[in-house]
Computed example of a mutant assay.
Amino acid sequence: MPASYTPKTRDSEAQEHTSSQSLQTNLSAAEATVRDVLTGKGGALFSLAPDDTIAQAVAMLKDKGVGALLVRDGQGALVGILSERDIVRQMAETPGETLPRLVRDLMSAEVETSSPDETLVRVLRRMTDGRFRHMPVIEDGALIGLVSIGDVVNFRLTALEYEALQLKQLIVG
Rank of each mutant, 00 (worst) to 15 (best):
G74S: 14
K64L: 04
H134M: 05
A109R: 14
P50V: 11
T128R: 04
L82E: 00
Q90T: 12
S83Y: 03
T53F: 06
L120Q: 04
T158G: 10
P2D: 15
A109E: 15
G96D: 05
V58S: 01
E163L: 09
I54S: 01
S83F: 01
G150Y: 01
G173I: 10
A55R: 06
R72P: 00
L167D: 13
T18C: 08
D11C: 02
I87R: 08
G65C: 06
V111T: 04
R10I: 03
D129R: 08
L120P: 01
Q21A: 11
A57T: 04
T94M: 02
V121Q: 04
V79L: 02
G150S: 09
G80L: 07
S108G: 09
R122W: 12
D36F: 02
L160Q: 08
E112D: 13
E118V: 03
P50F: 07
T6H: 02
A30R: 11
R85Q: 06
L170N: 07
T9H: 05
F132E: 05
R122C: 05
R104P: 00
L48I: 11
R133A: 04
S20M: 15
G145F: 06
T9K: 13
T53Y: 05
P136Y: 09
L38M: 07
L102E: 11
R125N: 13
T33K: 10
A142E: 11
G67D: 03
H134R: 12
P2I: 14
G96P: 09
L102V: 01
E118G: 00
A77M: 07
P2T: 13
V37Q: 05
I81M: 11
E84V: 02
E93H: 09
D36H: 09
R133I: 07
T113Q: 01
L48E: 05
M1V: 13
G80W: 04
G76H: 00
L61A: 11
T53A: 07
E163W: 12
